[in-house]
Amino acid sequence: MIRKAWWKWVAFLLLIYTSIYGFIVKVPKLDDRLEHSIRNMFFHVPMWFAMMILLFVSVWYAAKYLRTTSPIDDFSSKAFAATGTLYGFLGLSTGAIWANYQWGSPWSGDPKQNGAAIAMLIYLAYFVLRGSMTDEDKRSRVASVYNIFAFFMLFPTLWILPRLTESLHPGGQGSEGNPGINGKDMDANMRSVFYPAVIGWTLLGVWVSTLKIRYEILKAK
């Protein structure tokens, strides 16, 4: 499955579609500031969606490792965590660019920004933890347990706390939507670009992760 080509083609075509149609599609004028920068919805927001999916796969393999203790599960867990974290940092930096023009400064201490940054630091600690141990069995086991902790820290940092206070992002206290997007801001046209973008970026992340896994397997031989 991971060596098959068809889903890599799907990823490529979906992202080419996104980066062409994402510029052409008619977008609603939501406020005087946002204008065409709402098209960031096709590039910035999918980073977070893909990150959450990749980190979920990572914690899945972490739990699987604890049951099987197969090194391949540990490689998988590490690779998906790495790609997921990369997407998270891309999300933070693209968000900062957008925020500079929408909210007036790259970092406003918005609860969602702070939460995402904390979540990323927690995942960075995962790699520090891995690097600090030389015994392979011990490293894999401790890393798997920490991975489960790190994944469940995403719940408060990304999904709960940003909802409880006022936020510049949609979905804070007293505003519509979830902490990432206000569903009502997107019309059917935008959805037809947004969802393919999410699938495309996720598949690209899976592809890169499988390459890392295959490399680790080769190295272990």
């Binding site: 990823a11 490529f12 992202l15 080419i16 980066s19 062409i20 510029f23 052409i24 690209l204």
Partner: peptide
């Protein structure tokens, strides 16, 4: 758009 398409193609 051409720039973004080139980047995505190059990345792939």
């Amino acid at each position: 758009m051409a720039v973004v398409v080139t980047i995505v193609t190059g990345l792939f």
